[in-house]
Structures are given as structure tokens and as C-alpha cells.
Simulated scan of single mutants.
Amino acid sequence: MDNTCYLSIRITALLMSWASLSISLVSYHKSLRYSRKEKKNLSLLATPVYFIWRACEVGARLLCLSFFVTAFQAWIFLPVLLHWVAVTIWIIKQNTKFYDNRCFETIFNIICGYVMIFCFLNLREGHTRFRYLWFYIVFYFENFFMLGIWWQAIPLGDWYDFYGFILIFILSVLHIIVQLIYYKFSHPSKIDICLPWNRNLCYESVCHSLDEDEKQMKKPHHLDQQVVVNNG
């Protein structure tokens, strides 16, 4: 088998794995919505849009990790482990309720934290836009940080280095654009992309729903003073 044929087989296998992973994320999202009777499922138009969103997200991430590992080998475990630990703590902070047993819940959170090395998973009800915002700020900072270090360590040489570098930027831009298109035109529930900025709303969106006592504790102090003055 010559090198050209061998390279073609490897590229085909990589593309099929990429497509399979993206399809799995679409299937997971559709199955999750099927399990909730109050949730509308993805339409025929929304499904390919969601697929492109996920494919761009995962593709850019995997390319960044692959480039980084070619230059630093085992050092790849450092950013991956830090991300895994940070995201797992964040998930635990969200107070997910998938299991009655807290030990099982923690194990589930750790597994989801591993998955979120590569893509975002929504594990709580409520507005997800703030969660997307904070997650993708960290996500893309890590991507371009790894890419920048790789660039300094191994200047572009072979043709696939250059095209891979360009492809990461294309996939990253497409990811953001297609996600906005999905939420604006294809989301099963017609929603507004923008949310009013409110401290409690932001906290509940990123972490977990507040009970009434917590909401009172998180009210700005100047509002409490204003109520006292008005009552006086």
C-alpha cells in the first residue's frame, strides 16, 4: 500500500469518527428532549443546524489538542486535567439532580466533566445562555492558548500544519455563527438570544436555582436601603 492510499484511509477514518461523534451529540440532544414531554424536539430544519454547530465545536477542539500534543506530548495532560477539574467543580456547583445517591451523582458529574473537555453539555434547566458564555470564553481561551504555544514551538512547515491552522479558525467562527443562527431561527422554543442582566438571573443560569432565602441574601445592599427609605 503506497503512502497516498494510506493517507487517504487515515483521513477518511478521521472524518468518519468526527461525523460519528457529532451525530452522537445530536442523538443525545434529541433523546433528551424526547424524554421530556413538555419539551419540543428538533425539527427537520433544526437538526442539520445543530449538527453543524456541534461538528464545528468538536472539530476545532480536537485539532487544537492534536496540534498541542505533537509539540509537547505528555504535557497535554496538564491543560486537559485542569479543565476537567474546573468544569467538574462547576457542575457540582450546579446541584444536578440525576441520582438520589450523592456518591453516584458525584461520579456522574466527574464523567460529564470529562465530556466537557471537548464540548458543552447542559445539565440544568433554565437559561443556558450565560452558561454558554462563560464556558466558551474559557473554551476558546484554552484553544488559542494551546494553538499559540504550538505555533511558537513548531513553526508552520508541512502543508497540513498551515491548512489545519486555518481550519481551526474557520471552524471556530462557524461554530459561533451557526449557534447564533440555531437559537435565533431553529430552536424548538422561540426565545430571545439576549437576556436582561440581573445578578440573580446570572447566578441561577450559571450555577443553580436560588431559593427565597438565598435570593434575599443576594439582593444588592443599596436596594434594601431604598426600601427602608420608601417605607419611612
Rank of each mutant, 00 (worst) to 15 (best):
F165K: 12
P220G: 02
P188S: 05
A55I: 06
A71V: 10
V58D: 10
E214Q: 02
S35Y: 09
C56M: 06
M16G: 00
K215V: 08
A71H: 11
P188D: 02
W53K: 08
F118T: 06
W151Y: 08
N230M: 10
D2E: 00
C194M: 14
E204K: 01
K190C: 15
S17Y: 03
V227W: 12
C103G: 07
F104E: 13
I177D: 02
L14W: 15
H222I: 05
H175Q: 03
W90A: 00
Q94I: 11
L167H: 04
T96N: 05
R199G: 11
A55T: 13
D224T: 08
V173T: 05
I170W: 03
F67E: 04
K184P: 07
G113F: 09
L7I: 07
S172Y: 05
R131N: 03
L62I: 13
V80E: 06
F120I: 05
W18Y: 02
Y163F: 01
H175S: 05
F185H: 02
V178K: 02
V173S: 07
K40V: 13
L65E: 01
S209V: 11
R199S: 11
F135R: 00
I9L: 08
L147T: 05
A86L: 15
W159P: 03
H175K: 06
I111R: 06
F118M: 03
L78A: 14
R33G: 02
I111H: 09
V69N: 01
Y183T: 06
C194N: 15
T4D: 10
E212Y: 06
Q152N: 04
K40Y: 14
I154L: 12
K219R: 07
F77R: 05
S43Y: 13
A71Q: 08
N143T: 10
W134A: 10
Y99T: 00
S27Y: 13
I23V: 14
D2I: 02
S8F: 06
C207R: 07
I111D: 08
F108M: 04
L180E: 03
Q225L: 12
C103N: 09
N41I: 08
C64T: 09
W197D: 15
